[in-house]
Each structure stands twice: as C-alpha cells, then as structure tokens.
Simulated assay, not measured.
Amino acid sequence: MITPLAPYLPLAVVLLLAGLMAMAIPQLTTRLGPKRPSAIKSSPFEAGSESSGPARQRFAVKFYVVALLFIVFDVEAVFLYPWAVNFQALGWFGYVEMLVFAATLIVGLIYVWKKGALDWES
C-alpha cells in the first residue's frame, strides 16, 4: 500500500543527509585539522594590513542613503529589461507607462541631488 507521503521519502533522506553533514563536517575539521597555533595565526587579519580602530564603529548615514539609492535604481533596471524585450507587444500604452515610471525616477534623482545626498564632501 502506497501512502500519500511516499513521494516525499527521497526529500526526507536528502534533508537528513544534509543535516548530518552540517553537523559532521565542523566536528571532523575540528578533530582532524592541524593544531599549530602561533602569534601570527592568532592575530586579526584584514586585507593584508593591521586593523585600526574598533570593529563596531558607526558609519555615516550617507553610506545607507547611497545603498538605498542603489537599490531604487537597480529596481529600475530590473523593470527596464522586460519592458525592452516586450516593447513592440506593449504598444503605446507600455511606452507611456515607462515614460511615467522613468519620469518619476528622474524627479526622485533630481530631488536627491538638490538635497545634497550625492555630495561626499559635505
């Protein structure tokens, strides 16, 4: 007799093996790996140079503003590609809709520019 859960048996096996490997690999590397600590190996490493300052320092808000602006204009690029692929099928309606979308983004960019969010010196 076949139960309704029978098709999920291979998935359960894979998940069980993945869980076992996730626990076994760190244990094996800890037990079988080399154990030769030294002052150089124990020192903090940051791109080949000595670290300076605390690791938990505060970042300027400008970094976050630029990250948010990047996301906004990245989303624009994501919407532009499918529109360009289907440009002829969309017709004038799609053209006008993309003009409105692009105009909104341009107005937002002008606003951010006027506010000085893109000026790093200030």
Results as ranks from 00 to 15, higher is better:
Phe93Ser: 10
Ile71His: 04
Lys41Val: 03
Ile110Ala: 14
Gly116Thr: 03
Ala103Ile: 06
Val96Met: 12
Leu118Gly: 02
Val78Thr: 13
Phe45Ile: 09
Gly116Val: 07
Ala67Asp: 05
Glu121Ala: 06
Tyr8Ala: 09
Lys62Glu: 08
Leu5Ser: 08
Thr3Val: 04
Val61Asn: 12
Lys114Gly: 02
Pro34Trp: 05
Ala12Leu: 11
Glu121His: 10
Ala89Gly: 14
Leu68Glu: 10
Glu76Val: 14
Ala84Lys: 14
Ala60His: 13
Ser52Phe: 11
Phe101Val: 02
Leu15Asn: 03
Leu9Pro: 00
Pro37Arg: 06
Ala67Gln: 08
Ala117Ser: 04
Arg56Trp: 10
Val85Ala: 13
Pro34Lys: 08
Leu90Arg: 15
Thr29Gly: 03
Val100Gln: 11
Ser43Phe: 00
Ala117Gly: 14
Gly33Trp: 02
Lys115Glu: 07
Leu17Gln: 01
Ala18His: 00
Glu46Lys: 09
Ala47Val: 03
Val61Gly: 10
Tyr8Ser: 13
Trp113Pro: 06
Thr104Gly: 15
Val85Cys: 04
Leu16Asn: 04
Pro7Glu: 07
Glu76Met: 11
Ala6Asp: 07
Gly91Ile: 03
Lys115Arg: 15
Val112Asn: 09
Arg31Val: 11
Glu46Asn: 06
Glu46Phe: 11
Glu121Pro: 05
Tyr8His: 10
Ala47Glu: 10
Glu121Lys: 14
Ile2Gly: 07
Phe101Leu: 11
Pro82Lys: 08
Ala47His: 15
Phe87Val: 11
Ala102Phe: 04
Met98Ile: 12
Gly19Trp: 01
Met23Pro: 01
Lys115Pro: 03
Ala18Phe: 02
Leu109His: 11
Ile106Gln: 06
Gln27Pro: 00
